[in-house]
Amino acid sequence: MRVRVLFWSYFRDLAGGDEIMEVLSPGATIAQLLEQLHRRIPRLAALQKSTLIAVGMDYQDKDYVLKDGDEVSLFPPVQGG
């Protein structure tokens, strides 16, 4: 299955772009997506403790089971106001 990964704020600079498509096995979790991404983009791995993760418009935990076509956003702590 394929999921679209969007990078926000300075994560975009670390990832070298706004978004990428990742191919995963059916039933893969966010944790597995991150493992795969971190191998390719080690600079993001260093920030994983402070990384916020959303699927669509809602926050999700690393054990969330992804579906084909999901849009996953990765970003640093928010700073509105």
Partner: peptide, 8 residues
């Protein structure tokens, strides 16, 4: 807002 709304 400063915890959850995705604004940077």
């Amino acid at each position: 807002m400063k915890q959850t709304v995705p604004i940077w």
